[in-house]
Design a protein around this nucleic acid. Structure first.
Length: 485
DNA sequence: TTTTGAGTTGTTCGA
DNA sequence: GTCGAACAACTCAAA
């Protein structure tokens, strides 16, 4: 029996991996392959944080494969060339892989499929990265959805496939392994390591994902509806980087939540679970939108935003202050520094910093999208694009133009004791709770007692909230039909 | 077919 | 202190 190539993409897992299962069922030797194809990513090759995560994930995948008598063959360069080379060396007559949905990856998929088929190879792609394939969800006119709620309602009428299982027997090895690069040779590791405290809870790889899911489902999901908004608590699943790389699949997550309903028979098993599944729904919606509107990573979905009066930023001072967490608004700065140190930011805080960049500083959402792309370990083109366009109000199901987060109010509501700010903005740690979100309002003696020197140890606000809010409302109003300013 | 109501995540103002 | 209204325009689906 001839070998089958399994081309690993965003499905770096052995469980619930339809392409791998199909190759194993075939009965012949299986050749697991990963190709680092930066050209094939178009304008959105993975950024430094994401590459660091990928490095560890590939190591983990290779180890898991070795436990089953197999290994990961690693190549670099054009995907098609690499797959053809390996097929030639090994005599593989089949190549299976998990579908991706980014515009560049989709185009690459089609080209690879056609070319390999032309070589006489059984070339097939499989779903599994999403609960619902983008084509299978359509509105009554047969088109894509642009509003989340009807989209998700429609999805919930469709069946969710159970995770697929790989048989217990090992993966048959080929007579000879083709040559492979060492994972280190891909040069994915960033120069800077993650925050030491966090490196422990970040366990890239399939096992780390399973442990994280198990912990979340048994401990936090019940109170998720309320706690997910609290950056000072550990109330979210934190699964995003693992989901991005497919170290766990959404069907596995779905099935773990479903298992909570076993006794009661009620599904979803509570408000927390319902809210959590809704977040998976947003991930589905993001991919649905990117699939149907492939220009959205660069261009606003709502054309009127082409004439949005963005503010000026001579010397990039404003953008720089935002990126480095020196805006003078503690909740914003805490978020940006958490991102810098850990490669991750709490979702509530992502909304706050995004609103701040777009509405208070009036800098284009594309600046924010690029920064997140390079700094997040969970950087995902679909989710990043939806999130930024949503925040800017130029995307699908857009936030109303008047929804401008007030950084002080948000801080007090969702980080009530200031624990999150104290952790990530340590120069403010000794300020009393009353001023932790607005140090410029603190009396001089309180500042002195806390060792804070405004404008020196911590910046004054780079914009005035009320003035920035008024300017943003005016800018948005200028977009109204007719365009009257 | 047309109309109507609802839609992830907010803030401010005035009663 | 709390509460409701106001702050657009558009998409989608139910009536």
């Amino acid at each position: 029996m001839t070998p089958a190539i399994v081309w690993f993409r965003r499905d770096l897992r052995l469980k619930d991996n339809p392409a791998l299962c199909a190759a194993a069922r075939r009965g012949g030797p299986v050749i697991p392959v990963f190709v680092l194809d930066e050209e094939g990513e178009g304008r959105w090759a993975p950024g430094p944080a994401s590459r660091g995560w990928l490095h560890h994930s590939l190591r983990s995948l290779d180890l898991s494969l070795r436990e089953r008598g197999s290994r990961l063959v690693v190549a670099r360069g054009g995907s098609l060339e690499a797959l053809r080379r390996i097929a030639r060396r090994t005599g593989a007559r089949a190549a299976y892989w998990g579908r991706r949905y980014e515009p560049a990856a989709l185009a690459g998929d089609r080209a690879v499929e056609a070319a390999l088929a032309g070589d006489g190879i059984d070339a097939r792609s499989f779903g599994g990265a999403l609960l619902f394939e983008p084509e299978s969800v359509a509105n009554r006119e047969g088109g894509p959805f642009r509003v989340f709620t009807p989209f998700w309602r429609r999805c919930l009428e469709l069946p969710v496939a159970a995770p697929e299982r790989l048989g217990a027997k090992g993966l048959a090895a080929p007579a000879a392994w083709p040559e492979s690069l060492d994972i280190d040779a891909l040069g994915l590791l960033p120069r800077k390591e993650w925050d030491p405290g966090l490196a422990e809870s970040w366990r890239p790889g399939e096992r780390g994902a399973a442990a994280r899911l198990k912990r979340f489902v048994s401990r936090a999901i019940e109170s998720y509806a309320a706690d997910r908004d609290r950056p000072d608590l550990d109330g979210t699943s934190g699964l995003s980087p693992w989901l991005h790389f497919g170290e766990i699949g959404p069907r596995q997550v779905w099935s773990a939540v479903r298992a909570l309903s076993r006794e009661s028979g009620v599904f979803p098993p509570g408000n927390g679970a319902r809210a959590f599944l809704g977040e998976l729904g947003w991930r589905e919606f993001a991919h649905h939108l990117l699939f149907h509107f492939p220009d959205t990573p660069e261009s606003p979905l709502r054309p009127a935003f082409g004439r949005f009066p963005w503010g000026g930023d001579p010397g990039g001072r404003m953008l720089g202050a935002w990126q480095t967490g020196r805006t003078g608004y503690p909740i914003v700065d805490a978020g940006m520094r958490q991102l810098e140190h850990t490669g991750w930011m709490h979702n509530r805080v992502r909304m706050i910093v995004a609103s701040f960049l777009v509405k208070h500083l009036r800098l284009s959402w594309t600046h924010g999208a690029k920064w997140f792309w390079n700094t997040l370990v969970d950087a995902d083109l679909a989710n990043n694009t939806l999130g930024w366009q949503w925040s800017a109000g130029c995307g699908a199901d857009a936030a109303p133009y008047f929804r401008i987060f007030a950084p002080v109010r948000q801080g007090m509501r969702f980080d009530p004791a200031g624990a999150y700010v104290r952790r990530w903005v340590p120069e403010l740690a000794k300020l009393p709770g009353a001023f932790i979100h607005c140090p410029w309002k603190a009396p001089a003696d309180a500042l002195a007692a806390a060792g804070v020197s405004l404008g020196r140890s911590y910046p004054r606000p780079i914009v005035d909230h009320a003035a920035a809010r008024a300017a943003a409302l005016g800018a948005f109003r200028s977009l109204r039909a007719g365009g009257a300013a």
